[in-house]
Design a protein around this nucleic acid. Structure first.
Lengths: 131, 131
DNA sequence: AACACTGTACTATTAATAATAATACAGTTA
DNA sequence: TAACTGTATTATTATTAATAGTACAGTGTT
C-alpha cells in the first residue's frame, strides 16, 4: 500500500501522515472508509504498531480521520471547522515555498498551471458540497 | 536581527537557513553583501557558534551564500544552475501544500493572488536579468 | 460466555540528531 | 603582530524517533 523511505530525514510516522492525507484529500479514501488497523498495517510495513498509532493519532488531531475503540479508524467525512490559525500557517509555508521556486526561475504562470491540476484532483470526487 | 523560536520543532539552524533564504530571495540582502560573522551572530543570538556555522554551511550547499576563509560569508549574486532534481522536490512539496489548502476551503483564485504578491517580492529588486 | 478483532496507554530501551562547549588551525587585513 | 574571518574536530548532553513488550477497553461474531 505504501512505500516508506526508512532513511529519509522525515520520520516514518510523518511519512504515514502525509500519505494518508493525500489519499483522503484526493478521495482515494472516501468518507467513512475504514483504514487498515494499527496491527495489520504494522505487519504489512514490517514496522512497530506504535509507529502506526502515532501517525493515526496525529491524523485524528488534524481532523483527517476519526477512530472508534473496538471498531477501527475511518476517513473523516469532511473538514468541519478549520482554525484560521492553521490555514495561516499553511499559506505562510506556501508563500516561502513559492518564493523560492520563483527565485529559482519558474514563472508564476507555470505554478498557476500546477494549481489547476491540483484543483481537479481535490475536487475530483463527487463530494463537493455547494450549499 | 532575528527572532528564534527555541522551542520550535524546527531546529535553530534550520530556522536560520529559512530566515537568510528569505532575506536573499527578497533581496533585503543584496548580492555580495556580507553576512554577520559566525562568532558575532552567535553572540547576538546567544547561541553556539557551531550552530551558526551549520546554518551557513547549509546555505552555501544550497547556493544562497558563499564563504571565503578569512574574509567572511556573502549573499550569492544569483543562482547559476539549479538542479532539476531540486526544483522537482520543491514543486512536489508545493503540490501537497496547495492540495491541503484547497481541501480546507481556499479557492485556487485566492492562492493565485498570493502568488502575485510573492512575484512582486521576488522581482522586487533591480536584479532582473531579461537577456 | 468466549473469542478475535479493534483502538489506546504505558514503560523501558536503543539509535539518531540537535545543540553546546572547548579547542585548534587557516586565511585576511590593518 | 594582532584581531578578525571561516573551518574542523572531539566530547557531552538533551531530545526524539522507533522498537519492544505488555496491558486494558470496546465491538462484533459465534
Amino acid at each position: 500500500m505504501f512505500e516508506l523511505d526508512v532513511r529519509s530525514r522525515l520520520p516514518v510516522y510523518e511519512q504515514l501522515v502525509e500519505k494518508f492525507k493525500q489519499l483522503i484529500i484526493s478521495e482515494v479514501l472516501k468518507a467513512d472508509e475504514q483504514l487498515p488497523s494499527v496491527r495489520v498495517l504494522a505487519k504489512q510495513l514490517t514496522i512497530n504498531p506504535n509507529t502506526i498509532q502515532k501517525a493515526y493519532r496525529e491524523l485524528e488531531r488534524q481532523g483527517f480521520i476519526y477512530s472508534v475503540k473496538g471498531k477501527g479508524s475511518f476517513a473523516a467525512p469532511a473538514i468541519k471547522s478549520v482554525s484560521s490559525e492553521k490555514l495561516d500557517r499553511l499559506t505562510d509555508e506556501l508563500k516561502k515555498l513559492a518564493a523560492e521556486i520563483m527565485y529559482l526561475g519558474m514563472p508564476k504562470e507555470d505554478i498557476c498551471e500546477i494549481l489547476s491540476e491540483i484543483e481537479q484532483m481535490v475536487k475530483g470526487g463527487d463530494g463537493v458540497d455547494t450549499d
